[in-house]
Design a protein around this nucleic acid. Structure first.
Length: 815
RNA sequence: GCCCGGGUGGCGGAAUUGGUAGACGCAAGGGACUUAAAAUCCCUCGGCUGAAUAGGCUGUGCCGGUUCGAAUCCGGCCUCGGGCACCA
């Protein structure tokens, strides 16, 4: 008998499987299809534990479903465009394409070493022409339908490097390379009109029964639908008569409590209001200060800083004059860039009013709560209640008053009902080289002209200089920029911005269905066969952006009749982070653990097993090298069980009543149910328990029964594919274990013979009973009442009632 | 700041629908085997009390509530993590 040596058997089977083309998939079969998708990696250079976790989960599902008789598509590829390649180019003077390719080469090797059952013939790489040609083509489709448009938007601008910075490149308001204070600079940029799909993106969340509820809630809040009223406030200012100020509020019921207005500092009215007044200087200083704050900081702002403009507005409810202020807590991007402030009933307004000594007027009273004292207690009253100080609306519940005031304003043309969404259009322009070019040409005569389909792809030029300074490198390449207008043939200029990499990752799973197609992005029949994705697995950090963008793409493609469904992912598993030292393991943070040394020491099977066993998939997993050892020991125990010879080889092993057979059926049932609910850690725990049971059995025949070993190995094969294959082969099987069926169980044999019933007195456990599963509730109740241990606690008291929970417990309530 | 999660022994976790808290694994302690070590196997292992592997009390971040019964449901708080639109 030789010992378990993963370093020998793993490379051997990796080659064998490749030779046998074990994991290639096609559509020519009668089996039901199953599309198992993992979020494709960004080729950062090295696999980290987060990848291992993601792909181990995906692989267990793929192998399990295959054994259950499904035709499984389990592909992999590379989200290969992006910022880090360009940064590497600046740092190491390597071309982004070469850097990316070498990263992919390394990571492919690591993935193969892990023994993941990918169909590598379908590998996609978003940075290759044969892929980004179709990314560009999809952009043209959006453009054709009027869903791609140009608008002004701000970018982070480093005045020293003369370059646009990503949010990640801004550290505490400063450029990460030269520490210059970053400014915001408006640029004309491309957007996809995802807001046209707001309502569908929101409503269809209801269809996603296989999605975790928290992810749906996050998306719902992100889309942020609200019903409210747009209200017109007249401005009373001698210099600007007849001006109006529009605000949007979801709380028209608090209208009578408005004591001041706040504008975003960049609101177009501000300059008009202050022109030539004594307030002009102070306001301008404040605006300059705010200009240097990023959007993020402004959202975090406590809302206490602001300046009075000197102007007044009139509350349409009661004609009261109220002062107009500006503050950084109001954002131009949301609503109308102005708010009516109701300090008594909004916490931010409340804090602002306190800081600037503005009046606080209560217009809603809470049932028996003393609103007056709460408000003096430094807290706004934000709940529903009864309206007061609101003229004809006094006495109404605020929920009714909300509707009535809205209608009243609409009636006198001072306001109108509106539906708002927080979701903003998707800014896709990036002033960078390493991305899919936006296929647009600007002609002086013809304007914005799309590149004709036949001219796709717009190729990224190879000869590029990277300095990290100045404009995007593409603007420096004459042959790229200077083109003829496709319409009038006059000299024209090519768009030099590239697309957000989220575009590339919003459609890659369709390309997997038909990866080699050079005529189309994907053939309809292939996509119709595989889509929707039955199980999608990836990090919780993608809960909003990637998943929302992909849903938007699916809806658009569905509308263009390119795909058969408008929700791409039927079931979603959001795996928790693998963290180390309390922080997210990520390429950008640099606290990455290299899986290679675990594989070298214990083998890929142990690495996979441990990462699945250490924590349930959706929960965070704190990496620690301890515990890996335990999984390695477990695999060794299985190895010994399967390779040691039974001392009594001729005994019959098929007696269906035997404890061993029953136990085996019970374990198959338990493990199957655990895998079905994606509870891999408990599935492994149950297999460990089974091995302990076999090992502790004195009867060597039972320990080494081939019936039991066969089932143990097949159940373990999705988790530890190499070792189980080796043992399967050693047992004399010709065909791979990965082509076997998942073991089935007989529900009769899997049944427990006796049930343990807990006896409680007043909810505290006093005894347990062993009863047959057929025992009636009355019978169990009687036995419980007869329990000597329970009697000690009943004695001298009256039994008020007895609760029987079938198959679980009896609770005797005494007084 | 806003939105979404998590918090259970010394540690990772289990408890699937409100019904025996601590499965399985790690660490620790004790023992067997061995010249010895490694490996392997066996036993103990939340806390207090107790001779006890009898029993009792207590215990799932904190405070309170609902219930015959709460790790699980509700209210409030503390704390850690994710996301916040140019990292992917």
């Amino acid at each position: 008998m030789n010992s378990y040596q993963p370093s020998i058997i793993e490379p051997k089977w990796q080659k064998e499987w490749e030779k046998a083309k074990l994991y290639l998939t096609n559509e020519q079969t009668n089996k039901p299809k199953y599309y198992d998708l993992v979020m494709f990696p960004y080729p950062s250079g090295n696999l980290h534990m987060g990848h291992v976790r993601n792909y181990a989960i995906g692989d267990v599902i793929a192998r399990y479903k295959k054994m259950k008789g499904f035709n499984v598509l389990h592909p992999i590829g590379w989200d290969a465009f992006g910022l880090p390649a360009e940064n590497a180019a600046i740092k190491h003077k390597a071309h982004p394409a070469d850097w990316t390719d070498s990263c992919i080469e390394r990571m492919s090797k690591q993935l193969k070493r892990l023994g993941i059952s990918y169909d590598w013939s379908r590998e996609v790489n978003t940075s290759k022409e044969e892929y980004y040609k179709w990314t560009e083509w999809l952009f043209l489709k959006f453009f054709e339908k009027g869903l791609a448009c140009r608008k002004k938007a701000k970018v982070n601008w480093c005045p020293d490097c003369q370059t646009v910075l990503a949010n990640e490149q801004v550290k505490e308001d400063k450029c990460w390379r030269c520490a210059t204070l970053v400014e915001e600079k408006p640029l004309e940029q491309w957007f996809l009109k995802i807001t046209d799909y707001s309502e569908r993106l929101l409503k269809d969340l209801e269809k996603l029964k296989g999605w975790p509820e928290p992810v749906k809630t996050m998306q719902r809040n992100w889309i942020g639908k609200s019903r409210g009223v747009e209200i017109k406030f007249e401005i009373r200012n001698p210099k600007s008569e007849n001006k109006e100020l529009l605000i949007y509020t979801t709380r028209p019921d608090t209208l009578f409590g408005v004591t001041y207005m706040v504008l975003a500092p960049e609101h177009p009215l501000v300059d008009e209001l202050i022109k030539g007044t004594k307030y002009e200087k102070e306001i301008k200083t404040f605006k300059e200060k705010v200009r240097h704050e990023t959007l993020h900081e402004r959202e975090e702002s406590s809302g206490k800083e602001g300046v009075f403009t000197g102007a007044y507005a009139v509350n349409p409810a009661n004609n009261q004059e109220i002062p107009i202020w500006i503050s950084d807590y109001v954002l131009m991007e949301y609503g109308t860039g102005a708010v009516m402030a109701v300090p008594a009933h909004d916490q931010r307004d409340f804090e602002f009013a306190k800081a600037h000594n503005l009046p606080i007027k209560i217009v809603i009273k809470g049932g028996n709560r003393d609103v007056q004292s709460q408000v003096s207690d430094d807290k706004a009253f934000v709940d529903e209640g009864i309206m007061v100080n609101s003229a004809q609306f006094d006495g109404q519940p605020s929920t009714e008053g909300l509707k009535n005031i809205g209608d009243w304003l609409a009636g006198k043309k001072a306001g109108k009902w509106q539906t708002h969404y927080k979701l903003r259009d998707w800014l896709i322009s990036r002033q960078r080289y390493w991305g899919a070019p936006i296929p647009i040409i600007y002609c002086e005569k013809c304007g914005v002209v799309p590149v004709p389909e036949k001219d796709l792809p717009v190729k990224l030029p190879k000869n590029i200089k990277f300095t990290g300074k100045g404009a995007s490198p593409l603007t420096e390449v004459k042959e790229f920029v200077e083109v003829k207008c496709p319409k009038c043939k006059a000299p024209a200029k090519r768009e030099t911005d590239t697309m957000d990499t989220f575009i590339c990752s919003s459609w890659y799973f369709y390309r997997y269905c038909d990866q080699k197609n050079s005529k189309e992005a994907f053939a309809k029949d292939k996509v119709n066969y595989w889509i929707p994705i039955d199980q999608y697995i990836g990090g919780i950090e993608h809960a909003i952006l990637h998943l929302l963008y992909s849903r938007f793409f699916a809806k658009f493609l569905f509308d263009q009749k390119l795909i058969p469904i408008d929700e791409p992912f039927s079931n979603l598993l959001t795996q928790g982070m693998v963290v180390k030292d309390g922080a997210k393991m990520s390429k950008s943070k640099g606290n990455v653990v290299d899986p290679d040394h675990i594989i070298e020491k214990y083998g890929a099977d142990t690495a996979r097993l441990f990462i699945l066993f250490a924590s349930p998939p959706e929960r965070e997993l704190e990496w620690s090298d301890k515990g890996v050892e335990g999984c390695f020991r477990f695999l060794n125990r299985v190895w010994r069980l399967a390779t040691e010879k039974s001392q009594t080889p001729n005994k019959s092993e098929t007696n269906p009543k035997s404890e061993l057979i029953k136990k085996t059926h019970q374990i198959i049932k338990a493990v199957t149910e655990d895998i079905e609910r994606l509870s891999f850690n408990t599935a492994i725990a149950k297999l460990m328990g089974f091995v302990n049971y076999l090992n502790s059995n004195k009867d060597s025949f039972i320990r080494h029964s081939s019936f039991v070993i066969r089932h143990l190995l097949t159940m373990l094969s999705p988790f530890a594919p190499y070792m189980t294959e080796e043992l399967w082969n050693k047992l004399g099987n010709q065909e791979s274990i990965h082509l076997q069926s998942w073991p089935s169980y007989d529900p009769q044999l899997a049944k427990e013979e006796m049930l343990t019933i807990v006896v409680q007195v007043n909810g505290r456990i006093r005894d347990t009973l062993l009863v047959s599963p057929d025992a009636s509730d009355d019978e169990i109740k009687q036995k419980a009442h007869a329990s000597e241990k329970a009697k000690n606690f009943i004695a001298g008291k009256n039994i008020a009632k007895t609760i029987v929970v079938p198959k679980k417990l009896v609770n005797i309530v005494v007084k």
